[in-house]
Amino acid sequence: MLSVTGLTMRFGGLKAVDDLSFEARAGEITAVIGPNGAGKTTVFNCITGFYRPSEGGIVLTDAEGARFALDRMPGHRIASRAKVARTFQNIRLFAGMTVLENLLVAQHNVLIRASGFTLLAVLGVGRYRAAEAHGLEKARHWLDRIGLIDRADDPAGALPYGAQRRLEIARAMCIDPVLLCLDEPAAGLNPRETDALNALLLAIRADGCTLLLIEHDMGVVMRISDHIVVLDHGKKIADGTPAEVRADPAVIAAYLGEGDEDEEAA
């Protein structure tokens, strides 16, 4: 599905990611973990086109066998063509718009084509109506799944924190991604919300979507991941199943042995 080879990202003299290679296999949940400042979010930003890697390749192969070189695509095409969706560490909803509008904006590319690039929609003719009804149906489906159907017409910024996290995932899912990248989805959630999140992520995986996950909550990581990649100081120090990683001495050293209070996540 996703194959990262020799990925290096430099910011001036700093090597945030150093010669990283890993695979995220189709239909699995792959977790990227590591101490603060290990370069996890940088990897995500490279995969989703927010950064252009200094070196290395990122190739996505979808179910039909089409290959996309993500490291060379413009950011918005990674979402619209290669169908890679992402969420953000600090939630980035369209806070002033309603929950429903957030989900419709995510279907922008489908809808704008149906709207005859806006002209037909302004005049109120053509198949735009049907397309919009279909878009609303999809939004409704996701609102049902994340339990926010009653809040559909409220501003997204007015939702409680946990609901905003779920909405951001639903919004990302509305672009029909083949790969969903989640940057700390469990951050700030209470145990009950974390359980609901786990269930949601497993359901998304069951639908056939591949997940890539950055997470600090080891409970979440160990319970739902099929495969874990551990980073420290931009380098991969371990790669395997949850059980293997948990037993890896290098991982234990990275988490417990070396203090990294002086480092902050990017």
Partner: peptide
């Protein structure tokens, strides 16, 4: 229209817009 919503989304958060393929 989708374009109008994309404008408002752009006002709210440009980075999120890009991540959604706009």
């Amino acid at each position: 229209t989708p374009l109008g919503r994309a404008w408002e989304a752009l006002r709210e958060d440009e980075t999120a817009c890009r991540s959604l393929g706009i």
